[in-house]
Design a protein around this nucleic acid. Structure first.
Lengths: 253, 253
DNA sequence: CTCTAACTATGTACACCGTACAGTTTGTAT
DNA sequence: ATACAAACTGTACGGTGTACATAGTTAGAG
C-alpha cells in the first residue's frame, strides 16, 4: 500500500514540493536534476516566450533530458506552474523601504507590482492552490511586519494585506492586458484610450449606458489621465487611507 | 486587399463580435448558426464540465456541426472565451437594490460575486482584452449610476468602482481556489484552515516568518473566522468606508 | 437568365500537447 | 554479490487548435 502520496493534487505533497522538503529515499541513483533546476528552466522559457512556450517537452529539451524524466521531479505540469509562480515571485528586499507603515506599505505594493510587471506571464498561470510557498510567505511577512507596530487587529492586518495586494494584482493584470491588446496601431501607451473611446462611442450611441458614457468620457478626457502608474498610486493611497482610518478607530476604541 | 480585418486580434473586430454588429454581407447562404448560439453552447458546456470541457470539437458536436464550421462565426478559441465571459456575466438586475449609494454598491458587489460563484469557470478564462462587452458595460452602468448623485469626482467614481470590483474578483478567486484545493479530506469548508495550519506550522518551524506565524495564528484561531462571506463583507465595508471619506473630502473642499 | 463572387460547411492533415506505460540502466543498502 | 528502488528512455494514445483544399449554396451583377 505504502500510502501512495504524491498524486499531485495532494496538498501536503505540493507543500513538500514548494518547500523542497521531499523525503528522498536514497536507494537508487541520485537524479541528475533537481526540482529547482526543472522549475528554473521552465521560468527561463516563460521569461523569453511567455507561458505558452512552456511545455514539458521544451523544458526537458532545455535540460538535455527526456520529457518523461521530468516527472521524477514534478508530478504534473499544473504543479510545475505553481512552483514557477513561487520561484518567479522571488523574495522582497525591504532594506530600502521607509520605516513608517505608510511608506513601507507603499514600497511593498510598488515592489510587488514591479515583480509582476517584470514577468507578465505570472498573471497567466492559473493558480491551483492558495499561496503557500516560501516566496509568497516572505512577501506576507514583509507586509505584516510593517503593520506590526500599528494599533491594527490581526484580522485588520490580514484584511488590509488582502485588499492591498489584491489591488496590486488587479492593476497589474489590467495593465498587462491593455499592453497586450494594444496592437501595433500607434505609438506609446495612449492607444488604449483610443480603444476605450471606440467602446464609449458605441455605448453612447446605444443610449443604454448614459452614465458610463458621461463619466468615462470625462474621466478619460481629463487631459492626460496620468497613465497606469497614477491609477496604481491612486488605489494604493485609497487603500492606505482606509488603513489609517482603521487605526484611528482602534486607538480611539 | 480588402482590408483583411478579422484576424481576431484586431480589437475593432472583437468589438463587432461582442456587440453582434458584424457586417454580414448577404451573398452566400445564410449560416445555420449564429455567434449567439455558438457562445451559448460553449457556456452550457462550461457550466457542466468547467472550462476544460470546452473545446472547439465539443462545441461543434453539441451543435451538430463540423468543428471547422465554428470558425465562420468565431475567429478563434480565445475570442470565443472572451465572448463566453461577457455572455456569462449577464446583466445585473438592480430593481431590488437599496436607493442609498452605500446600500446600492453593497448590493452591486454581492450580485457580482454571486454571478461569479454561480459560474466559477469564469475565473478560469484568461481575459485577453479589457472588459468592453455589453454585459460588462451594463454592470459598469449600474455601479456608476449609483454614485451619480454623490459628490464624487468622475475619476473617483472610476477608482471606487475599480477597487470594489477588483475586491469582488479577488475574493471570488480565492474562495473558488480554496474550494477546489480542498480535497475529500474532511467535510465542510473548514478544511482549508487545516491546510493553512500546516503551512503556518512550517513557517513557525523555520523561524523566518515570525510575524506571519503570530498574526495568522491569531487571525485563524479567533473562534470561527466567519468564513468567506464575512471576509467578503469586511472588504466591501472597507472599500465603501473609503468612498465615504472621499465624499466628505470632496464636499468640504 | 445566366454567371460569378461571396459565403457556408466539410474533411483531411499537421504540429503539438500532457502523460500512461513498459522496459532499461544505474547505484546504493543489505 | 544481490536485491531492489530510483532515474531515465522510448513509444504510444487520445486529445488540442486551426490551416488548407474542396464542394455546395445563394444572391446580386451583367
Amino acid at each position: 500500500m505504502a500510502a501512495e502520496r504524491g498524486s499531485g493534487r495532494d496538498p501536503a505533497y505540493l507543500m513538500d514540493l514548494l518547500w523542497r522538503t521531499q523525503p528522498s529515499g536514497s536507494r537508487g541513483p541520485r537524479g541528475s536534476l533537481s526540482v529547482d533546476r526543472v522549475v528554473a528552466a521552465a521560468v527561463e522559457i516563460a521569461d523569453t516566450e511567455g507561458i505558452a512556450g512552456v511545455s514539458m517537452r521544451r523544458v526537458a529539451e532545455r535540460l538535455g533530458v527526456t520529457t518523461m524524466s521530468l516527472y521524477n521531479y514534478v508530478p504534473s505540469k499544473d504543479d510545475l506552474l505553481d512552483l514557477m509562480f513561487d520561484m518567479a515571485a522571488g523574495e522582497p528586499d525591504p532594506t530600502d523601504w521607509p520605516d513608517d507603515w505608510r511608506g513601507g506599505l507603499t514600497a511593498f505594493a510598488m515592489a510587488q507590482r514591479q515583480a509582476l510587471l517584470a514577468r507578465p506571464w505570472m498573471l497567466d498561470v492559473p493558480i491551483s492552490a492558495p499561496p503557500m510557498g516560501p516566496s509568497n510567505l516572505a512577501w506576507m511577512e514583509a507586509a505584516l511586519s510593517i503593520m506590526d507596530d500599528t494599533p491594527l487587529t490581526e484580522g485588520d492586518m490580514m484584511g488590509v494585506l488582502s485588499i492591498l495586494s489584491g489591488h496590486v494584482l488587479n492593476e497589474a493584470r489590467l495593465q498587462v492586458t491593455m499592453e497586450r491588446a494594444t496592437p501595433r496601431l500607434g505609438v506609446e501607451y495612449a492607444d488604449w484610450n483610443v480603444l476605450y473611446g471606440q467602446m464609449l462611442a458605441r455605448a453612447a450611441a446605444s443610449g443604454s449606458y448614459p452614465t458610463v458614457a458621461r463619466v468615462a468620457a470625462k474621466a478619460f478626457t481629463e487631459e492626460e489621465s496620468g497613465g497606469p502608474d497614477a491609477d496604481f498610486r491612486y488605489g494604493v493611497d485609497y487603500v492606505l487611507d482606509g488603513a489609517a482610518a482603521l487605526m484611528r478607530a482602534r486607538q480611539a476604541g
